[in-house]
Simulated scan of single mutants.
Amino acid sequence: MSKTLVVTNDFPPRPGGIQAFVHNLARLRPPGSVVVYAPAWRGAAEFDAGQPFPVVRHPTSLMLPEPTVLRRAGDVLRAEGCDSVLFGAAAPLGLLAPALRRAGAGRLVGLTHGHESGWAALPVARGLLRRIGDGLDVLTYLGEYTRSRMARALSPAATGRMARLAPGVDEKLFRAGAGGAEIRRRYGLAGRPVVVCVSRLVPRKGQDALIHAWPRVLRAVPDAALLLVGGGPYRAELERLAAPLAGSVVITGGVPWEELPAHYDAGDVFAMPCRTRRRGLDVEGLGIVYLEASATGLPVVAGDSGGAPDAVLDGETGLVVDGRRVNPLADALVGLLRDPGRAKEMGARGRAWVEREWRWEIQADRLATLLEP
């Protein structure tokens, strides 16, 4: 049986979307076919003990493409009999690919996310990304936006070896009836139309635009409520903006991961009007939250930043808006809140799309194909 070494800075118990992406791909590999090499993190020993594969921890919390990491990765590769390597994020650890090929890896695949698109726009990083692409057999991309951005930095040969691989959705967890009624009771939202946003509280995600749009929404739907789920550095500013709307805007702060499906299920419409910032360096790579909302049966309102539109069938599973313009955002929200039939149809099409294209098992099968020589 072939065996894959996953070399990654991004792995639980450290929280985050990339960490969940890499972990789910690893856990869905056949038994005995994967070993993970990742940094140390608080709670790692307890987490690793519950995994169906071995996890080797680097002694520090960050791994860079330098000799110590290369030596340890090579040692694990040989000791475990691995014949392929999967880099959890191609930048920067994919720079180790040529040396690991010399150490015995026959197939090297690098996952990309959002930050590699930013690398493609910076002169020095652009050259490093080109080196990474040339050293790998496959460089993955999330969607057309990230593919086109990275292709500008890659050699023609590396561009020809690119393949799509995106995060999946657990459609058994994210579903209608996942506990939303209890969440509505918890926050005093029972019986009200609810727009929900589940995301880290940072400026790019656009929660402030939702708050700025909310007075216009309330003029059309007076009992509507906005539920902002998540924590992050922008929380204090969002609370300041929402203060005049007390009773109509709820900011939950961070919630346990196991409660996220119920928080999605508490909404009638999902909205995250993300927008690109810092001249394209701060951009949405995909937006898995849109797909989790679709799996829950909600219509989605997405911003047009980066690859976010790749997670929405505009006009079918939801609407894509300019995250920098408040009035069109408010109009989209009002339109869905005042037409529950249309919203329900969009949610149903979104659920079907997730089941057809975005389940974790589908992504795992795609990875298996990419790892084949």
Rank of each mutant, 00 (worst) to 15 (best):
E171I: 05
N327F: 04
A26Y: 03
G315P: 02
T140G: 04
K3N: 08
L142M: 14
C197L: 05
V269Q: 04
R29W: 01
L227A: 02
E372C: 02
R279S: 13
D10A: 13
L336P: 02
A45W: 07
T369Y: 00
V320S: 06
L129F: 15
A99D: 12
S148C: 07
G315N: 04
P98M: 02
G335K: 04
A311Q: 10
G280S: 11
H23Y: 15
A91F: 15
A45F: 04
A90F: 00
S148P: 02
E357G: 03
G230A: 05
V124N: 00
A163S: 14
V85T: 02
L77N: 01
E144Y: 03
S155G: 09
A308E: 11
D339S: 11
P52T: 05
L228G: 05
V76G: 03
L226D: 10
A190Q: 11
W358G: 01
A120C: 05
T159D: 09
V196S: 10
G253Y: 04
M346S: 06
L313A: 13
R192P: 02
L226H: 11
L291W: 05
G350H: 08
V283Q: 14
L139N: 03
G247Y: 11
D365P: 02
A176K: 13
L260F: 03
T369W: 00
L173Y: 08
V56P: 00
V35C: 13
A181W: 06
D322Y: 10
C197Y: 00
Y145L: 08
G17A: 09
A243R: 15
V269A: 11
V195P: 10
A151W: 09
M162Q: 11
Y37P: 09
A97M: 03
L227N: 03
T8F: 09
R184K: 14
A293M: 13
T112F: 07
R275V: 06
A45K: 12
L189H: 08
M1K: 05
Q19Y: 01
R164E: 15
T276S: 14
Y264A: 08
R14S: 11
G297M: 06
P65K: 02
F270W: 09
L367G: 00
R216T: 15
G280I: 12
A262Q: 13
W119C: 07
G94F: 07
D304Q: 08
A20K: 02
G287Y: 09
L329V: 00
V320H: 04
T317R: 05
H23C: 12
T140I: 05
I251D: 07
S155F: 04
V312A: 01
S148Y: 06
T146P: 11
V334Y: 01
G347D: 04
I183F: 03
R192C: 12
